[in-house]
Amino acid sequence: MRVAITGAASFLGGRVLRRLAERQERDDLLVVDVAPPPAALGVRYRPLDLTEPAADQKLLDLLREEEVDTFLHFAFFTNPRRDQAHAHELESIGSLSVFAACAAAGVKRVLMRSFTAVYGARGHSPHFLTEDTPLHPNPALAWARDKREAEQHAASFARRYPDMRVTVLRFAPLFGPHLHTFYTSIFDRRVVPVLMGYDPLVQLLHPDDALQAVDAALATWPQGAVNVVPRSPIPLVSALHLADKLPVPVPHPIAYASSDLMWASGIADAPGAFVDYVRYPFLGDGARARREMGFEARHTSKEALFAYLAYRYPGPAAPEGRGEERSHADSEATA
């Protein structure tokens, strides 16, 4: 298996790369990215910017030259970007380039990273979102719109090139040690605004489980989208209390307006449309992963939360009942 990976500088992509580097011949591992991988890994590297105009041609030449048969596409932003045009070029147009080049070069398998947030938190959708649920993120949210377009490219190329196996893993929000995202930063504050009168269930996925799901997908290659979700969800307000935060209820019209204002003025990390995700649940259904990849998460959302808290607030001051979770954090650090 000759594997090329892009987005190896991301949290998940980097971990997948490290795991593959441990496991297989390093000469068969190629990083295609703007940033070189850590030299210690000893994997090969070809610079490529997916946002440049002729990226697809360049990628095609590169894939042919290297005789790549498996492509792992992890180049997505977890945090919302202020430069929306660049994010669109990378996520939507970049994915189009990736699929076009892979199809032309005869790459046999493509794995793409996606997000359960792409379903959108709409209130009217089913409580558990199966993979065939239409993707309806908030149209005001460029972050989700670009990712949905990438998914559409994946689906359309899978349809047009039946010989190419396209697997899309929709990960629930990652939560655990060594993660620093706009939503984990909520748990770095003492006082956290929540929506008055709403308490959705949230899924927090431990990174160990995410990695295990990638392993399972690389072994089974299911066609199409598969949700990767933790064992059980947790109510948002309970999660905040378990982390000893002070939740302050805010009426939702004020929350939308004020977070938009704070995003525009550079104070907040995310625009107002993200308020949807703390208003309504967006829970992926893990049945397909169980059925077709034999994957079942080992951690619950609560365990993922505790693993993050043990990492973020180390020392004996951690509240009781976190001893067991700390061992997860240790295993993560040594892995």
Binding site: R190, P233, L246
Partner: peptide, 24 residues
């Protein structure tokens, strides 16, 4: 903040369980 948050947490979990079912 610490004291307040701890007290609030105790009060919250005196009438909420930490684990709910899939539908909440």
């Amino acid at each position: 903040w610490e004291t307040l948050a701890r007290a609030w947490r105790e009060a919250y979990f005196s009438y909420h369980s930490e684990d709910v079912d899939d539908f909440g």
